[in-house]
Design a protein around this nucleic acid. Structure first.
Lengths: 252, 252
DNA sequence: CCGGGCGTTCGCCCCTGGGAAACGCGGTTC
DNA sequence: GAACCGCGTTTCCCAGGGGCGAACGCCCGG
């Protein structure tokens, strides 16, 4: 039950994480002290990971290898949601000139899976693959709103409700109230809960896939929360979601 | 020298590869027979990988987890090339209405790192993260042309010159001749060497990063190889490359 | 009600992952 | 130019654990 795991694999994964924590690049001694393991251990693991392509060696420095991206590609598209949603996300960005996003939920985390920038899009890093707490983003809340309460409870138990900004919801009761409101309107709002100065509108996708998904449009509070702009964004979200859902229900 | 590797890690990676080989989804027994290892071994490894997020479990089926995409994101952007090139790739797609691509070379492989579709773009799967032989794509040949001959030799020694279509270059001398031509014109051509019916023009990027990169535009032979269209594509490639190179040399 | 297939668990043995220390090399300091 | 770091690499050893095969229990279909 507890030894049904492979420690060597866990160590290798910690090496990958360590490289990221050290700024995306590390040497052997550096990584050894960071992880508190022997140099020789790090040496062997990095050797192995390099042969597999999971890390790349340049001189005496190690970085994450592009092979991880190959696996990442498979993770993105094992259901058809990514491929179907991608053009619609771009369309949203073009229509609103803001930043449009697609998120999947997995393992009680939200993961940004695709992003498209309109002409006026803010320069924040919603890079592909980044994980976020579900309670702290509009996308995440839109997804949580599709879950039964006990499922939300279990997620909160696992990940907690850490504050990302001072506007983040950190209270369980407040969260459930918010989710109820989202279920009524179909739209999740995020006002500086994730990034100071930024607001976003999000909507979950009801698709045949078992993997929860949502789309959103993000911009500065001043542009996104004013009455007229908000109505436009809402409409854009609805249309994009409808197209995606229609395409996927047809093919299923 | 030969035991400077961690077999357990190699086994775990084989599990990930196995899942991909089995169509992106597998059960424990299925994977065990596919890899010729004991069921209990597969069980432990998948357990471990799931805890790390590298695989995702749905019922009794395992898939590649989105955590791989997080690492993939770091692999994409440890130099600034990806972020700088991405908008230019999109611009190329918009201007030509074809499919535009960005490739990095790592570990003697070419890896598609970004793709953008114009309005008439063909529906082929140049999915992010896919690896390709360098000799068999326009992008790869553009990259090889920037290498010294002995470096090309070593790559060919490692990966060979397998035929992807019947037009693929499979002869060493022919390859070096082709590379010489590319060095003269600055542009690599690919006429059905990678996919039947498809042609592409590619150009390498000379940027401060140690990681080789190239951009390309792909389309049906009929649209890409005609005189006028080819000239347009060439110009688009040149402009995009110049902008990328300028932006990166400025920040370096 | 029975049989087969699956994921899971158990117990064992030998292998190997992991640590500590020594090595060799390059760059820096007096 | 000699002494000295600090790094990656190598060596050696030992106990812990990776991997196997078999047994278990569950679910499903017949």
């Amino acid at each position: 039950m507890d030894d049904d795991r492979v420690r060597a694999t866990e160590t290798s994964v910690r090496m990958l994480e360590g490289i990221v924590e050290l700024g995306g690049e590390a040497g052997i001694t550096e990584l050894a002290t960071h992880l508190s393991v022997a140099k020789s251990t790090v040496y062997k693991h990095l050797n192995t990971l390099e042969t597999s392509g999971l890390v790349a060696k340049r001189g005496d420095r190690y970085r994450i290898g592009l092979r991880t991206l190959e696996f990442g590609g498979h993770a993105q598209r094992y259901d058809g949601v990514y491929d179907t949603a991608r053009p619609q996300v771009r369309k949203m960005a073009d229509e609103t000139d803001e930043l449009a996003n697609l998120m999947f939920a997995e393992d009680a985390w939200g993961v940004y899976v695709h992003t498209s920038r309109g002409d006026d899009a803010v320069e924040i890093d919603t890079q592909t693959g980044r994980r976020a707490h579900l309670h702290a983003t509009g996308l995440g809340k839109a997804i949580l709103a599709t879950f039964a309460d006990d499922r939300v409870e279990r997620i909160v138990d696992r990940r907690g409700l850490p504050a990302v900004t001072e506007h983040t919801i950190t209270d369980r009761a407040a969260l459930f109230e918010e989710l109820e409101a989202i279920r009524d309107t179909g739209i999740a709002h995020d006002r500086e809960e994730c990034i100071e100065g930024m607001a976003c509108l999000a909507r979950s996708l009801s698709v045949p896939s078992e993997r929860p998904a949502a789309i959103s449009i993000t911009g500065p509070v001043s542009r996104v929360t004013t009455g007229e702009a908000e109505a436009t964004i809402r409409r854009t979200l609805e249309q994009a979601a409808n197209v995606i859902e229609l395409n996927l229900s047809g093919s299923a």
